[in-house]
């Protein structure tokens, strides 16, 4: 009996907890849905301390994953970090709320070359967060031969020493580059055409990881990787033996954005957080922890010369860089190809 009675307050607390979880405390809340390893906890804590807004931060490891959960989750997200091509799909599908620039006093910090890009020509729905490339990182202590292209990365000598992003579109794109094809020409034939290339590559790959490919490189489980530039920049900071290379054939340039889903509940707080991220000193904090290319001119002024000289974050290059566009239903064909190949071995 005593046990039951002692359970009762627990039950009440539970019911109460459920009820209050729905209601907004002072300052309200913000459900942020972002890439894993992209928004430092310190930035979130700083925002909460200043505004009283509680931030629930949930993460994903690919644009596709974000889109799936967004479509599944209904109104549960207030602010998302879509990559450019996913944002384009969301805009076309009418799934975003326009961003009110009047509420973003720090919008002027952004560099004009990252505005009005093809995914959002009117700059109505998105705000650039970080920019980056996908390239090759090499542990030069273990790999002494030069690796400057996809072809040189995926060779028999590197068998089982390679980590790649667990992202079908990135892999198909790399294969398209080696074939000299346009990376946005994702026709069924083109995708099918990459099969032999990818099949050969997959035999050499040790692991697929989009969350944190740097971990396996740091642990010594692999020596080479096809990774986000930010991951390579962290590795480079950790140890200069890690070198970042943009492949000769061309590389994917991405812009990650901030956007507000159509059925977001806390639109005001989303604007508050966007503007907070646009502040020069906050944006610098992001760059300190996750060294991607910062599109914020004011923040760049605060960065140290070493940060600006990190070849992974701010590459000086004449390599061909391209952005992804929305490719409609081809995503399914890519997914099928990748699943198929992963199981062929």
């Amino acid at each position: 009996m005593k046990m039951l009675r002692s359970l009762l307050p627990l039950a009440l607390a539970a019911a109460f907890g459920v009820a209050t979880a729905g209601a907004a405390p002072k300052g309200g809340k913000l459900n942020l849905f972002g890439w894993s390893e992209y928004v430092p906890q310190a930035v979130i804590d700083g925002f909460t301390a200043e505004t009283g807004v509680k931030v629930n931060y949930e993460t994903y490891a690919s644009g596709e994953e974000m889109l799936a959960k967004l479509l599944a989750g209904g109104g549960s997200y207030d602010l998302i970090q879509p990559p450019d091509y996913i944002a384009e799909a969301l805009i076309k599908g009418g799934l975003l709320t326009p961003v009110d620039q009047a509420k973003l006093p720090h919008f002027g910090n952004l560099m004009p070359e990252y505005l009005h890009m093809p995914h959002d020509p009117e700059q109505k729905f998105t705000v650039p967060f970080m920019v980056g490339t996908v390239g090759i990182v090499v542990n030069t202590e273990k790999v002494t031969t030069p690796v400057n292209s996809y072809a040189e990365l995926f060779t028999e000598a590197h068998k089982n020493r390679i980590v790649v992003l667990d992202d079908g579109r990135e892999l198909v794109t790399a294969a398209l580059y080696t074939q000299g094809k346009d990376l946005n020409a994702m026709t069924a034939e083109n995708i099918a055409g990459t099969r032999p290339v990818l099949a050969a590559w997959f035999k050499l790959i040790k692991l697929f990881d989009s969350d944190s490919p740097k971990t396996a490189l740091l642990n010594g489980d692999v020596d080479l990787g096809l990774v986000w530039c930010g991951e390579a920049a962290i590795l480079h900071n950790e140890d200069k033996k890690f070198r970042y290379v943009l492949p000769k054939e061309g590389a994917h340039l991405f812009v990650d954005l901030l956007a507000i889903p159509k059925d977001a509940r806390n639109v005001e707080n989303a604007h508050l957080f966007i503007d907070y991220l646009l502040r020069a000193e906050v944006s610098k904090l992001v760059s300190d922890e996750f060294p991607y290319t910062n599109p914020n001119a004011a923040a760049r002024k605060l960065l140290t010369p070493e940060q600006l000289a990190n070849p992974a974050s701010y590459p000086v290059t004449d390599r061909k860089l391209d952005t992804f566009r929305h490719i409609g239903d081809s995503g399914a064909a890519i997914d099928e190809l990748i699943t198929d190949l992963k199981n062929a071995n």
Binding site: L67, I205, T339
Partner: peptide, 21 residues
């Protein structure tokens, strides 16, 4: 398994949360 050794659970999870199928 480094996301390389797909099992039926991974495929179902991928179809829901990545491939949106």
């Amino acid at each position: 398994g480094g996301a390389k050794v797909a099992m039926i659970g991974n495929v179902i999870q991928n179809q829901v949360f990545k491939a949106r199928n």
